[in-house]
């Protein structure tokens, strides 16, 4: 109300009028509050219903997809069994010492004048080789081979030691050497 306006009503009537205005405003506020509350309630229930419907649809779809997946259980179990065995086989092959490869290396080690009589491969990868020679040149060649191995010139072999060398009057040379496979 502007400062210049004039209210000629008695004070009790003024009070009643302001009380009525206040009640009106309060009623408006209450209507807005109740409306908001009702709206919130409607939103909550509609959301609940929509979500419920979506879950129902999703559950039905999931069930049908899961059922068709379960129909392939034989194939799945076969795959898993195969993968399990493949893992085990790979582990076995990974830990297996390849004797063939090692013997190939040792076989090509000696020239034609040197005969191999016995192999023995220990767990630590050391191969004990027993052989025989007929000539003095063969012994020289054997020593050369051992030097080549120790110099790292022979692939797959890291170290070689001549353990024993023996000869007699009527026999050739016999040797025992140990070779460390890399």
């Amino acid at each position: 109300m502007s400062a210049m306006s004039l209210n000629l009503l008695p004070s009790s009537a003024k009070f009643q009028a302001s009380k009525i205005r206040l009640q009106k405003r309060i009623r408006m506020v209450m209507i807005w509050l109740a409306g908001g509350w009702l709206l919130l309630l409607i939103v909550a229930f509609v959301t609940n219903w929509v979500l419920g419907m979506r879950i129902q649809t999703a559950t039905a779809k999931n069930k049908s997809v899961t059922d068709s997946y379960a129909l392939m259980s034989d194939s799945i179990l076969l795959t898993q069994d195969m993968k399990h065995k493949a893992k085990l086989v790979a582990g076995v092959l990974g830990n297996r010492f390849e004797y063939g490869q090692s013997f190939k290396i040792i076989n090509v080690l000696f020239d034609s004048g040197i005969n191999l009589d016995k192999y023995e491969l220990g767990e630590s990868g050391v191969c004990k080789v027993e052989g025989s020679l007929t000539t003095q040149e063969g012994v020289d060649r054997l020593e050369e081979i051992i030097e080549e191995i120790n110099a790292g010139e022979r692939e797959g072999l890291s170290e070689a030691v001549l353990v024993s060398l023996s000869t007699g009057k009527s026999q050739g040379w016999k040797f025992v050497m140990e070779v460390n496979l890399r």
Partner: peptide, 21 residues
């Protein structure tokens, strides 16, 4: 030896000793 190492079932040679005569 190579034949054994390329066989199925997988064979693993644990110890090996060979004598030739």
């Amino acid at each position: 030896i190579e034949g054994m190492e390329t066989s199925l079932p997988i064979l693993s040679i644990d110890t090996f000793d060979m004598r030739s005569d």
